[in-house]
Nucleic acid binder design. Structure first.
Lengths: 351, 351
DNA sequence: TTGTACGCGTTATCAG
DNA sequence: CTGATAACGCGTACAA
């Protein structure tokens, strides 16, 4: 009565969404309770009566109700999403890391938003920006090198961030990795100890692959320190790491560095291709030329001759990253925000 | 005054969320316009005045505003999410398919929600259920075999579904694949034509890998039709497809089927391990035993001897799936909902 | 133990 | 071209 004043109280508008999806309210009606009770029956089953609970559960089943996470996220400010950004998915060792992440995160109730950058930092920045809009509760990125904007976005995001596959003194937040530079140094020392003196480094470096760059740095510094020529470097091209590229590199290496006695590749994938190409063209490995890789792909072990490589615990990087994230999300104290998973030089028959 | 009656008109509640995130309203205030105008400046830039638009854009930059997709999803009923469910990510050829999907979907503004099932149909069902809650606009699954519940969930979801990597007459919705059975038949015929008569099939079949099962079916039917023994099958175990498993299978095969002259593996990964094991133990390939794989992994081509295999266009499966999804999401007419990407038998030196 | 009333941040709709 | 308002579906706080 009172407020039959001026504004004619606009009529209610109609539903804008297709009625296809069952809502909690409909479940409530079906079960003969309030929506709130349905919510509780789902999220805090112990807080509702036995009978009501089964009522609700059956209504859910009958209607095939699926909760709307977006609405839930609006209400709770929790998304249940972990964003993961990789350089590449296919033929890459990062797939193992994702598998490790996924294996730990899915059972914990988190879902994984995945994107890849093709090793392009600009693309990474774009992905970070776009993923942040989804309100992820945590984020995992490969590497510690980002554009300035991406870096500040990540720092200001106010959520747990895990950087992986590299090592640094000042991570954005959490870190699960190892030193690519140290690993490369160890490989050079290994080759030196084996008697090789005319080493060549080969890999894809011109793209945004900071890990390959770190390995090259390690090669250079170790070679220099040992009094070797540190400038024998053959850069490979192409966006995807493939065995074919490695195979084709051999001819060029033997042309440009005819006296080379060992080649250190930035990835086992290249090294595997190179080894096979040597076999094919009658170059003996390691007698004519030694070949080493990086990564610890399964092929390193299987190949004949087996590859000398740096084994990186790629699955464990994912698991550890997930564990750190979960701990931080549960507000558990994090002892050390940086986890060094290490690496292991495995000497095969190729050196 | 008036309504100091009974109901004390509950006081407004405080913000419940952390104030960390900038909202559209704050941008609006900063830019001196209404929230609605900000929304339009973002989504329909052509509908707002030049001056206002730049105003808004600068406010966005200054405040580092990131739109909240969950809220957007609530309002529009569009999530911008495509859910992708795989059996496995690591060391799997599905990674290529994901890369193909991602490469097409990310630029189109879609984000990828990823999950893996470890080849377990129950796990797949759980993932489907949980992913549906996120309101994806489309879904991609590997295979055409699902639990009854998952099948009906997918059918009733009312969104484009793409099944991949298999072939069937009645897909749930869209299909991008090929016939694993036919491919296996072709391989058996190839081996037969090459003169091999005592064939063995080996692979992991006991898990929920319907593709491996289809390949086994193909093997059996072709062997039978050609008058060969169709029961020489060595099932491998373990959840992950690895070269080591393939390597260790050779000894068992030569014990159980001493006269075997050819082995057809359900995956190149097994086959590659087997070939290397043969080299290692002095068994000549293909003279003593021929070996064939499946999948067209890069290693098939690189290995010495190179592997005879069925090449599947795995990246293209992802791209085609993405294209179909995008077409359907844009309500474009879909000519044929089933795309047969085919396969190609490539004869290597191993047979 | 159960129900009622907001409010989360955004967009569609309608009025100006 | 711009602004005000309602609605999206759920969870929290509070009342019953």
């Amino acid at each position: 009565m009172d407020t039959e004043t001026d504004k004619p109280k606009r009529r209610k508008r109609e539903r804008r969404t297709s009625p296809s999806r069952v809502t909690m309210a409909e479940v409530a009606r079906e079960a003969g309770v309030s929506a709130q009770t349905v919510s509780r029956a789902i999220n805090y089953p112990e807080q509702v009566g036995e009978a009501v609970r089964t009522q609700v559960q059956e209504a859910i089943r009958r209607l095939n109700y699926v909760p709307n996470f977006a609405a839930s996220q609006m209400a709770t400010n929790r998304s249940g999403i972990i964003a993961v950004i990789l350089p590449s998915i296919s033929a890459s060792i990062f797939a193992d890391t994702v598998q490790g992440l996924s294996t730990t995160l899915l059972p914990a109730g988190y879902q994984i938003l995945l994107g890849h950058t093709f090793y392009d930092p600009e693309q990474e920045e774009a992905l970070v920006r776009s993923f942040l809009g989804r309100g992820p509760e945590g984020m995992v990125v490969m590497g510690t090198t980002h554009t300035a904007a991406a870096d500040s976005l990540l720092k200001q995001a106010g959520l747990p961030i895990v950087e992986t596959w590299e090592w640094t003194e000042d991570p954005i937040d959490l870190l699960v990795g190892y030193s690519n530079e140290d690993a490369a140094i160890e490989m050079v020392e290994h080759l030196f100890a084996k008697g090789y003196r005319r080493l060549v480094f080969s890999g894809v470096v011109e793209s945004g692959d900071a890990r390959a760059k770190a390995r090259l740095r390690g090669f250079r510094s170790a070679a220099q320190r040992l009094g070797l020529d540190a400038d024998r470097v053959l850069l490979l091209h192409g966006r995807n790491v493939s065995m074919k590229v490695g195979a084709s590199s051999i001819a060029e290496i033997r042309t440009r560095f005819p006296d080379a006695d060992a080649v250190f590749y930035s990835s086992d994938v290249f090294a595997a291709g190179a080894v096979q190409e040597c076999l094919r063209s009658g170059v003996r490995v390691p007698e004519d030329i030694a070949i080493a890789g990086f990564g610890g792909f399964e092929i390193a072990e299987i190949l004949i001759p087996s590859l000398t490589t740096i084994v990186v615990p790629s699955v464990r990087i994912g698991q550890q990253a997930a564990d750190l994230l979960l701990a931080k999300l549960k507000k558990q104290p994090i002892g050390e925000p940086r986890v060094n998973v290490g690496y292991k030089l495995v000497c095969g028959q190729s050196t």
